[in-house]
């Protein structure tokens, strides 16, 4: 086997391998919508996060604008503190309404943002003023039964 031919094929092999990794990152994975460096953090206190998981999407008008970075329990307010890692391309007003929603009947839970009308924008590390907890099916059924009993 000629050296140059062998070198050529090894070059093709390495390029194809790196190309495959790039395709995996860009086309299959979420590297295109994944700005690692330029993101900012927003905090939200929720009374109940239901089944929200870390890495769950943050959506506004259905568009993914960030991801859930961290979930903690606060001993000061006795509720859940959710840290959102937001894409820095998107800014939201101070009075943005954050709620935990479910995509579809059995889908995953995500954080939905409904922008308000405030002129000032939320800065890195700030908190949402208005939040809405996740719907818990048991509570809903309980309330429904309670109302039913009260009505009769």
């Amino acid at each position: 086997m000629q050296r140059t031919v062998m070198d050529f094929w090894v070059g093709v092999f390495v390029m194809a391998g790196i190309g495959a990794l790039l395709i995996l990152g860009l086309k299959v994975g979420n590297l295109t919508s994944y700005q690692g460096g330029d993101s900012y953090a927003l905090l939200g206190n929720f009374e109940n996060i239901g089944g929200l998981k870390i890495r769950a999407p943050v959506k506004s008008a259905g568009v993914v604008v960030g991801r859930v970075a961290n979930i903690e329990f606060s001993l000061e307010t006795y509720d859940a503190v959710v840290t959102l890692s937001m894409d820095s391309r998107y800014r939201f007003p101070k009075d943005t309404f954050a709620s935990i929603l479910t995509s579809g009947l059995l889908g995953e839970q995500y954080v939905g943002l409904l922008p308000g009308g405030d002129e000032a924008m939320l800065e890195d590390g700030e908190r949402f003023i208005k939040t809405n907890s996740a719907m818990v099916l048991e509570e809903m059924i309980g309330r429904f039964l309670f109302n039913k009993a009260a009505g009769d």
Partner: peptide, 19 residues
Amino acid sequence: FWSQMQNAVDFRYDIVNGV
């Protein structure tokens, strides 16, 4: 097909772990 795939496959969690 592509958008659901890209939503579910995380670069760090899935692809880097596979590598």
